[in-house]
Amino acid sequence: MSLPHAILTSLAERPGSGSELARRFDRSIGHFWQATHQQIYRELARLEASAWVEATAVEGAPGRKRRYRILPAGRQELERWTGAALAPPAIRDELMVRLRAAGEVDPGDLTHELDRLLNHHRAQLATYEAVRERDFPHPPASRTGLLQLLVLDEGIAFERQRIAFCEAALALLRNP
């Protein structure tokens, strides 16, 4: 996946200014595809140059605030990309390699790092569960809502799996 497609997806869901898009990105798609606000603004300029999005000045707003919306060519690109063949994701997980290495060398106490990761995954799980409770108190009626819930539930399942993995690794390291 590429950042332009993540931004096009967000703009297809709802137009907005660059700052609104960056905030929405942090709260939703950013959980699955990370980008800095600077990267988002640079990509918005590229998307506008490609005529995939349009920016209009926001009257009365301080500075050069602009509101972005997806154009038909951007929607066509998003449709093309969404329908293209998808390569299975490659696992590239530094923790897995570090744990394998810990079987061969003495890295010292890895439990502090695993505790830190465990706390991170617990906090992320709590965030996802709060979003689910707030945004999906009832099953969505629309296809869009159902797909958004499916993605959120996958994030919840991922965080639960990582919590279980970190707990198992900690138990092993503490009681070999």
Rank of each mutant, 00 (worst) to 15 (best):
Y128F: 15
V53Y: 02
P176M: 01
H138Y: 07
G63R: 03
L118D: 09
L11S: 00
S17Q: 05
S50Q: 13
P140W: 12
A90W: 14
A51E: 10
A6K: 02
H120S: 06
E154K: 12
Q124D: 06
G155E: 07
G16L: 01
M96T: 08
L173R: 11
A22E: 00
T127C: 04
P62K: 10
F158C: 07
L146I: 04
N175F: 11
T36A: 15
E48T: 08
P137Q: 06
Y68C: 03
L152P: 01
L114E: 15
R160K: 11
E104T: 03
R67H: 14
R92Q: 09
Q34W: 10
P89H: 02
T111W: 13
A84P: 00
G155V: 04
L99G: 03
G108R: 01
R174S: 11
A169V: 07
R92H: 12
F165E: 14
G145E: 07
R64N: 06
I40K: 10
A126I: 00
L146R: 15
L11K: 00
E94K: 12
E77R: 15
V105Q: 09
R143F: 14
P15T: 04
A35V: 00
A73F: 00
E59G: 10
R143K: 08
A141K: 09
S28D: 15
G18L: 05
D106E: 14
A35S: 05
S17L: 08
L11A: 00
L147D: 04
V53F: 01
I163D: 10
A55S: 08
V105G: 05
W52K: 00
A141W: 14
A141S: 13
A171R: 15
N175H: 13
L125E: 06
L149S: 08
D93Y: 10
E48Y: 05
D106Y: 08
A123E: 12
A101W: 08
S19I: 06
A49N: 04
T127E: 10
L95W: 11
A90S: 15
A85L: 13
L8S: 05
P4G: 11
A84V: 01
A130R: 14
G74K: 06
P139N: 09
V105M: 10
I40Q: 07
A6L: 12
P4V: 06
L150R: 15
D109I: 06
Q161T: 03
Q124G: 02
A85E: 15
V53C: 03
E154Y: 13
I156P: 00
E154F: 13
A73W: 00
G18A: 09
Q76D: 11
A164I: 03
A35D: 05
G74P: 05
E159F: 10
S17K: 03
T9E: 04
H37G: 13
E167S: 02
H31T: 01
L86Q: 03
G108E: 07
A130L: 06
F165Q: 14
E129Q: 10
S10G: 06
C166N: 15
C166S: 14
Q39D: 12
A57T: 07
A141M: 12
L150F: 14
L152M: 10
D93F: 10
R75M: 11
L117Q: 12
A45K: 09
Y128Q: 03
P62T: 09
H138F: 09
G155P: 01
M96K: 07
E94H: 11
E43A: 07
A61M: 03
L78E: 05
L125I: 02
R132H: 10
H37W: 11
Q39P: 07
W81V: 12
L95C: 08
E104L: 11
A61P: 02
A6V: 13
